[in-house]
């Protein structure tokens, strides 16, 4: 099975729009491929947000291209939740071509049994006074692997660029793994670039504290995971935030203890 789709969105000057998509798929007998191309053009002073929550079944190869052209003083935001699929390779990109453009990527990856979530973001600063923020949170459990692959590039003509990247990973058990592969390619002298990444497990003390308050181990873990991804979940529309939290609760069930 293969699914190929093409999306083109143009946000006209000064407009604001929020596009939300949810992807799910039934289980087929053989591996399936989902290959999508999403392109967004954000005209001057417009603001556009593209939200995806992907919960493909465990036999889907999810290979997606997402990119946006961001013009003067426009804002582009990719909000990306990856829960399902066998392998996801997805790096939403913002090409900041207009002066004062701003790009953001908020991404959550949840890698469970037999899953590899290879997600990330690309910020290409072509014009001056552009800025970008990438926040990536990933969780690996039951032998899952999550990777962050990112690019921040600053062209030699782009002055006063600011960029901040933050990626945090949680590894819930000893069979799971996490990688971080960021690249910063800065060809201009006035850029201000920050990158930070951490990988850790859930603190025993925190877990113990919650359990001493009467929660089971699974509930305590669930609560900590919800707290970990909260900065991104709060950006989602209410229905989606609820759905995402429920999905994670379901996925976590029986995975601990």
């Amino acid at each position: 099975m293969g699914q190929f789709e093409r999306t083109l969105i143009i946000a006209e000057k000064g407009s604001y729009a929020h596009y939300v998509e949810g992807c799910t798929a039934p289980v087929y007998y053989a591996d399936a491929l989902h290959s999508a191309v999403v392109e967004v053009i954000v005209k001057p002073e417009a603001r556009f947000r593209y939200t995806t929550i992907q919960n493909w079944s465990g036999d889907v190869y999810n290979l997606v291209t997402k990119r946006a052209r961001v013009e003067e003083n426009a804002v582009m935001e990719w909000v990306d939740g990856n829960l399902g699929s066998k392998l996801t390779m997805k790096y939403p990109a913002c090409f900041l071509v207009g002066e004062g453009a701003h790009g953001e990527v908020l991404s959550i990856a949840y890698a469970n049994q037999k899953q590899h979530q290879d997600a990330g973001a690309k910020m290409v600063h072509i014009a001056s006074n552009t800025s970008s923020i990438i926040v990536s949170k990933s969780i690996s459990l039951n032998g899952g692997r999550s990777s962050y692959r990112g690019l921040v590039s600053v062209s030699s003509r782009a002055k006063n660029v600011k960029s901040r990247v933050e990626c945090d990973a949680l590894i819930l058990d000893e069979r799971s793994a996490s990688d971080t592969f960021p690249v910063m390619d800065i060809n201009e002298s006035s850029a201000n670039i920050e990158h930070e990444a951490t990988v850790s497990k859930i603190g025993e003390e925190k877990l113990f504290y919650l359990m001493s308050r009467g929660l089971t181990e699974a509930e305590a873990m669930g609560l900590m995971v919800s707290g970990f991804i909260e900065p991104i979940v709060k950006e989602l529309p209410l229905e989606y935030a609820v759905e995402l939290n429920r999905l994670i609760e379901l996925e976590m069930e029986g995975s601990v203890g």
Binding site: D173, E174, D179, F181, P182, E196, T198, V199, S200, K201
Partner: peptide
């Protein structure tokens, strides 16, 4: 700055 981590009970971080 690259991290490749296959163990869970670790502290690993970087900043650039």
């Amino acid at each position: 700055p690259i991290l490749e981590i296959d163990a869970d009970d670790v502290k690993a971080s970087h900043s650039a």
